[in-house]
Structures are given as C-alpha cells and as structure tokens.
C-alpha cells in the first residue's frame, strides 16, 4: 500500500450523477492497489466524464474530444512506469474517438480505459450518444433515435481486446473489483461503466439499470471467446456485469523491440556516435 492517499477536489457534476461513485471507486481502486499518485497518469478527452482527472490528485492530461487514447498510449510508450488510466464518456470514446478505440485495441498498449456510459450526451445537454437505445427521444432525435446502438463490448472482443468488462456505478463494490482487475491487466483493458445521467436521460435511470443488471457468476467462462461474444450481445431486460472476456496477450511493450527491455523510453540514452555512423552510409 502506498502511504499517500489520492485527494479529491470539488466537482462540477450534477448532484446524483453516476460520476461521483465512479470517481470514488477509482480513488479506492488505485489506493487498494498501492499506486503512488505520482506515478499515475489520468488521461481524458472532453465531456462530463472526461473531467474526472480534474478531481483527483495525480498527473493528468485532459486533451481533445475523442483523442484520449492516442495521447494515453503514447504517454505509456514514453514512460512505462506510469500507470495510465483513461476516463471518458461513450461519446468521446466510441463516437468522436471510434477509430482510436478500434485501433488501440489492436495496439494493446498496457493502459486502462474506463468508459462512463450513460447512453446520452451530457456536456452538450442531451443528444443521442453512440450507445443510446433506439427510440431515444432528444432535442435532436425528435422522433427518437433510429440508429442501432453501438455495442462496445462486442466490438472490443471482435477487435481482439484481451480484457473486456462491464460495471455499474450503482454497485461500487463490484465496480472497484472490476477496476482493479482492469488496472492489473497487462494490456489494453476496457470497462464500460453504466451510469445514470440524472439531467438528460430520463429513461436509462438509476432504477432502470438497478432493475436490469446482474453479476456474472462463477460458472461463467470469461476465457471463451464465443461465449463472451454471446454474453456481450445481451443488453435489455437483463444486463450482465463483470469480466465478459479475458485473454492473456503480449502487450505492445513486450512486442516492441525498443521497449521490451523494460527501460522507459524517456530514460534510454542514445549512443552518441550513431549519427556519424548513419552519415557514413550516405558517403
């Protein structure tokens, strides 16, 4: 255990927002894992969820909307001693940043991605998000969303992710357990965290989730990909929580020859005479 606790700061979230519990659980998870706040880097894009790093004492990088992952994985590539955790919403992660989501699963850099998924856009005040249910009525989707909801878990498994989980902000004990497993996982880990948006989502409320979620039991085999894909498709009256899929995979750092030694890139010294040698090749 680290002797140092993570401090939290006053937030700008609406009272009752699911983000409060997620922040609390994040703090608890990092502390229980004994992480030193000075070696933790919290990365986010833009959105309500993306404010999370603002409220916890750690290093932080709040970049562009949708672009948390490229910055996060590169920071980890630069310094593998950092524990890199991304917190962003589903609009940021799956919408604006959809391309990065897919390709960073393939890259498998050892970072953790917590997606605060409330099935609505909060910061922009209530438009459909990639995960909004079909029929969700908003000021923009006035006749109800006609798009098929994005299934992040199924896509993550299909793209080759080695750790795919779902949690619910209303079940903190379980959320902490999942968060810790995700942070410990060596590679890219995704946790889609369901949370109510009390201001803009009047359908997918706290009780909506509470009444539908259930925890996967010990009989569930999270190592079987086909089972996991079937489980990932279950969303509606019953919503499974837990590690949907896991697999040991070699991480980017293990496969990249420059990084495999374990010495952080920032600490690696270049041989002084290399440029002279390379110049010789042009003579």
């Amino acid at each position: 255990m680290s002797s140092e606790e993570f401090c939290t700061y006053e937030t700008a979230w609406c009272p009752g927002c699911g983000n409060f519990n997620i922040l609390k659980c994040l703090k608890q998870s990092l502390e229980e894992l004994g992480k030193d706040p000075h070696e933790v880097l919290l990365v986010a894009g833009i959105g309500q969820a993306a404010k999370t790093p603002q409220y916890l004492s750690a290093n932080s990088f709040c970049g562009l909307h949708g672009r948390a992952l490229p910055a996060a994985i590169a920071a980890k590539i630069a310094n593998q001693k950092l524990t890199v955790v991304v917190n962003s919403g589903e609009g940021d992660s799956y919408g604006e940043g959809g391309n990065h989501f897919i390709h960073n699963i393939r890259r498998n850099v050892d970072i953790t991605h917590f997606v605060h998924d409330n099935q609505i856009y909060g910061l922009t005040k209530g438009q459909a998000s990639p995960t909004s249910n079909e029929g969700t009525v908003t000021d923009v989707q006035t006749e109800g969303s006609i798009n098929t909801p994005f299934n992040p878990l199924l896509i993550a498994i299909a793209a080759g992710a080695g750790f795919v989980a779902r949690a619910f902000s209303g079940n903190p004990e379980h959320l902490v357990s999942i968060m810790k497993q995700a942070i410990l996982y060596k590679g890219y880990s995704l946790v889609d965290i369901l949370q109510p948006c009390i201001s803009f989502n009047k359908v997918n409320t706290f009780s909506y989730y509470k009444n539908r979620v259930y925890k996967l039991d010990d009989a569930y085999n999270s190592y079987d990909k086909i089972t996991a894909m079937e489980k990932a498709m279950e969303f509606g009256d019953h919503i499974p929580l837990g590690v949907i899929y896991q697999e040991e995979k070699r991480s980017f750092h293990e496969k990249n020859k420059v990084l495999a030694s374990g010495v952080p890139l920032v600490d690696q010294q270049q041989e002084g005479s290399l440029i002279e040698k390379y110049m010789q090749e042009f003579i």
Binding site: G63, P70, A72, N79
Partner: peptide, 8 residues
C-alpha cells in the same frame, strides 16, 4: 503530443 508530455 502524449509522448512529448511524458518526456519523449
């Protein structure tokens, strides 16, 4: 930018 932030 992320790599540079972290010092590379």
């Amino acid at each position: 930018i992320g790599a540079s932030f972290a010092g590379a």
